[in-house]
Computed example of a mutant assay.
Amino acid sequence: MNESILLLEERNEFDKAFEAYQKLYSNQNLDFELWKHFFFFLWICIEDSPLEFQERIDISKELKEKFVEGKKNFSELAEFNFIAGYTVSIFPYEFGDYDDLENEGSKMILKATEIEPENIIYRMVYLGDLPNLDRKKYEEAVVSAKPIVLEKFNGIGFFNKYFRQVLARKV
């Protein structure tokens, strides 16, 4: 992944980061690492970027397009299902019909755990997403996943920062 774009994210330079992502995205064959960071950047912008920026780039349209591209090209990857499922389950209304997409997000998280059953991060998120939460199993997964989360998401940029904060409760 292009570290200079991640540095732009760190500095909240939304316009420059978006332009850099667009340029890189249009000049390459579809690459999962690029897709996931661009998709996640757009998702984070829903809450963190200025409204003027969101309206100018039509963030809703961009996010939905990247979601559809991701499903078309990466639906068999566990990490795609985790990222897309997680983001859709948090803000289903950003992707379309609330009920349908909330359900789809949960199914994607389940699919990630089925593809990689040994992945404790996916399992933790799946357990936390269940309607009848088993608190004990979930807390055990949180404890087991924390060091792995801190290692996996140790880089810069919105993607790593967000998952470090949310999954390991670290700033």
Results as ranks from 00 to 15, higher is better:
Glu3Ser: 03
Ser4Gly: 00
Ser4Lys: 02
Ile5Asp: 01
Ile5Trp: 06
Leu6Ile: 11
Leu7Cys: 01
Leu7Gly: 00
Leu8Ala: 02
Leu8Phe: 01
Asn12Leu: 12
Glu13Gly: 03
Phe14Asp: 07
Asp15Ser: 08
Phe18Lys: 05
Phe18Ser: 05
Gln22Arg: 10
Gln22Leu: 11
Asn27Glu: 14
Asn27Pro: 00
Asn27Tyr: 07
Leu30Trp: 03
Glu33Thr: 10
Glu33Pro: 00
Leu34Asp: 03
Trp35Ile: 05
Phe38Gln: 04
Phe38Ala: 13
Ile46Lys: 01
Asp48Arg: 11
Ser49Thr: 07
Glu52Thr: 09
Gln54Arg: 13
Gln54Gly: 07
Gln54Cys: 06
Glu55Pro: 00
Arg56Leu: 05
Asp58Thr: 06
Lys61Tyr: 10
Glu62Pro: 01
Lys66Tyr: 00
Phe67Cys: 03
Lys71Trp: 03
Asn73Leu: 05
Phe74Glu: 11
Phe74Trp: 11
Ser75His: 13
Ser75Asn: 15
Glu76Ile: 08
Leu77Tyr: 12
Glu79Lys: 10
Asn81Gly: 08
Phe82Met: 08
Phe82Lys: 00
Gly85Gln: 03
Thr87Leu: 00
Thr87Lys: 00
Thr87Gln: 05
Val88Cys: 00
Ser89Trp: 04
Ser89Lys: 08
Pro92Ile: 06
Tyr93Lys: 13
Tyr93Asn: 13
Glu94Asn: 08
Glu94Asp: 07
Asp99His: 07
Asp100Tyr: 08
Leu101Trp: 07
Leu101Cys: 05
Glu102Val: 00
Glu102Met: 10
Gly105Thr: 10
Met108Asn: 08
Met108Ile: 03
Leu110Asn: 03
Lys111Tyr: 10
Lys111Cys: 12
Thr113Glu: 06
Pro117Met: 02
Glu118Asn: 15
Glu118Asp: 14
Asn119Ala: 04
Asn119Ser: 07
Ile121Ser: 04
Arg123Ala: 06
Arg123Met: 14
Tyr126Met: 10
Leu127Ala: 04
Asn132Phe: 05
Asn132Leu: 11
Arg135Cys: 00
Arg135Phe: 10
Arg135Lys: 13
Glu139Asn: 12
Glu140Gly: 07
Ala141Leu: 04
Val142Asn: 12
Val142Met: 12
Ser144Val: 02
Ser144His: 06
Ser144Gly: 07
Ala145Ile: 03
Ile148Val: 15
Gly155Cys: 02
Gly155Gln: 09
Gly155Tyr: 05
Gly157Trp: 14
Gly157Pro: 10
Arg164Val: 08
Arg164Thr: 12
Gln165Pro: 08
Val166Arg: 14
Val166Tyr: 12
Ala168His: 09
Ala168Glu: 15
Arg169Pro: 00
